[in-house]
């Protein structure tokens, strides 16, 4: 899932500025699961903004709504009137949600309430970790299901650098060395021969380096007549 965290409140207040009517839009998917921008967080942030604006003597009219998925048009259409009524729309979706809202409602002023951090998972309660960098050419089959692109600080493809120490990365003692994990896994699976091959330079065109990406599935597209 996409993992995000809320921006500092001062930054959110700056983004809202002196807008009188604020609509906080939560998202019911990834950011709900990571406790950053779901219905609950939208409610708490809305209350906070209401109270702080009252204390500042410039009370704002803050309302909240949470849609199932901010990244799909059909879920955005149902909040049309609320968006039209607001001076500022504070999105608690990931960067995709913010952009979808801004694109669907070109006249609305849409600002982000979250920082979208990575694609990852819950490791234990309260701890999320990055797992995928969406490089567009998955090599997990060669690395024991552990991604060196997302999890090695140098994105190395041929084993650990000299800074791997006691299972940890040179950048800090909190970060696991991805290549130590890969080595241990392949050793346990009797597949260490995979590490003896030299992996060639990666073709980064499938990653962000190839420009913004797009998938077109002709088998799924609607005929032109139906689209219109």
């Amino acid at each position: 899932m996409i993992v995000a965290e809320q921006k500092p409140i001062a930054e959110i207040q700056t983004l809202i500025g002196d807008a009188k009517r604020v609509l906080v839009v939560g998202c019911g998917t990834c950011v709900t699961v990571c406790f950053a921008g779901g219905e609950k967080e939208a409610g708490i942030l809305g209350s906070l903004l209401r109270m702080s604006s009252q204390m500042d003597g410039n009370a704002k009219d803050v309302s909240e709504v949470t849609v199932q998925r901010q990244c799909e048009w059909e879920y955005l259409d149902v909040i049309k009137d609320k968006v039209a009524d607001a001076n500022v729309v504070l999105s608690l979706g990931c960067g995709i949600g913010v952009q979808a809202l801004a694109e669907r409602y070109p006249n609305a002023l849409v600002v982000p309430g979250l920082n979208t951090t990575f694609m990852g998972m819950l490791q234990e309660q309260g701890v999320w970790v990055e797992r995928c960098a969406a490089c567009g050419n998955c090599m997990l089959g060669l690395t024991g299901g552990i991604c060196p692109i997302a999890r090695c600080s140098k994105q190395l493809l041929n084993g650990p650098c000299g800074g791997s120490s006691k299972g940890k990365c040179e950048i800090n003692s909190e970060t696991d060395c991805a290549w130590q994990l890969i080595y241990d896994k392949l050793k346990a699976q009797n597949r260490l021969h995979l590490l003896m091959e030299i992996n060639p330079p990666k073709d980064w065109r499938t990653s962000r380096d190839g420009g913004p990406r797009k998938i077109v599935r002709e088998d799924l597209r609607l005929p032109a007549a139906e689209k219109a």
């Binding site: 600080s153 140098k154 190395l156 493809l157 041929n158 030299i198 992996n199 330079p201 990666k202 980064w204």
Partner: peptide
Amino acid sequence: KNVHDIDSMQ
């Protein structure tokens, strides 16, 4: 930003 387009082996 760190580059690491290729690694030292490559």
